[in-house]
Amino acid sequence: MGVIAFTYVIFLLVLILADMSYTSPNEIINALKSEEIQYSIKLSLISCTITMILSLIVAIPLGYFMARYEFRFKKFIDAVLDIPIILPPLVIGLSLLILFNQTPLKGFLDLFGISVSFTVVSVIIAQFTVACAFAIRTMYITFLQINNRQEQVALTLGCNQRQSFFYVLLPQAKNGILTAGALAWARALGEFGPLLIFSGSTRMRTEVLSVSVYLEITTGKIEAAVAVSIIMIISGFAVLMIVRMFGDSKKML
C-alpha cells in the first residue's frame, strides 16, 4: 500500500526530471535572455503579486465571516465559493468573457473608457477569480481552527470586535495568512485556461509565463517551452517550500 502511494511521489519527480533532461542550462539562460520571456516573467511577477494582495484582502474578512457566523444560506454561499475550484478553467474564462463583453457591465465600463478583455487588467481578473477561492478556503480553515474563546476573553478585557480581531485573532492567523497568500500567488502563476479565453495570447501584451509556454509550443520551439516550464516549476516549488518552512502546511489545499 505504502509502496503504491510512494510511487506517485516518484512519478511526479520523474515528470520534472524528464522536463529537465529535455532542456539544458544554456536553453534556460537563452530563454531568460529573450525579450518576450523577460516581459512574461515581469508581467507574471506583477500580476501574481497583485492577485495575491487582492485575494488576501477578500479572503481574510470573508474567511472570518464564514468561520465565525451562522446565517441562512451559509451552505449555499460555501458552495458558491468553491465554484472556481471545481469549474473547468476554460469555463471560467468563457464566463469572464461573457460578463465583460455581453452584459450591461461592458456599457458601464465603456462610459469611463475602460477596456478589460485582452488587456493586462484581464490577466489579473482571470488569475484573481481562481486564486482567491483557494485563499478564502485556506483562511476559512485557519479561522475555524482558532478557538474563539480567546476573542471572547479579549472582549471582556476591554476590546471591541475590531480590536479583538486585529490584536488577538489576526496575529494567531499569521501562518494561515502566509499560506493563503503563497497559495494564491502559486495558483495565479499556474493559471492558463481563463487567460487564454479572456486575455488572449498576445506576445508582449498579455503574455505571462503559462502563456509563453503555450506560444513557444505553438511555434514549434519545444526546447524554449520546456525552459520556461522549468522556470515556472522552480518558482512555484520555491513558494510551496517557503510556505512549508514558515507557514502552516496543514492548511494547504
Binding site: Q152, L157, Q172
Partner: peptide, 28 residues
C-alpha cells in the same frame, strides 16, 4: 457589551493569547 461590564473572565483552558508573552497577556 462585555468591554463595558468590567468583569474579569477566566475560561476553562485559560485561553491565553499564545502569540504574546506572559507579561503582554497580563498587561493587555
Amino acid at each position: 457589551v462585555p468591554a463595558l461590564r468590567e468583569i474579569g473572565y477566566v475560561p476553562q483552558d485559560g485561553a491565553l493569547f499564545e502569540t504574546m508573552t506572559v507579561a503582554q497577556n497580563i498587561g493587555f
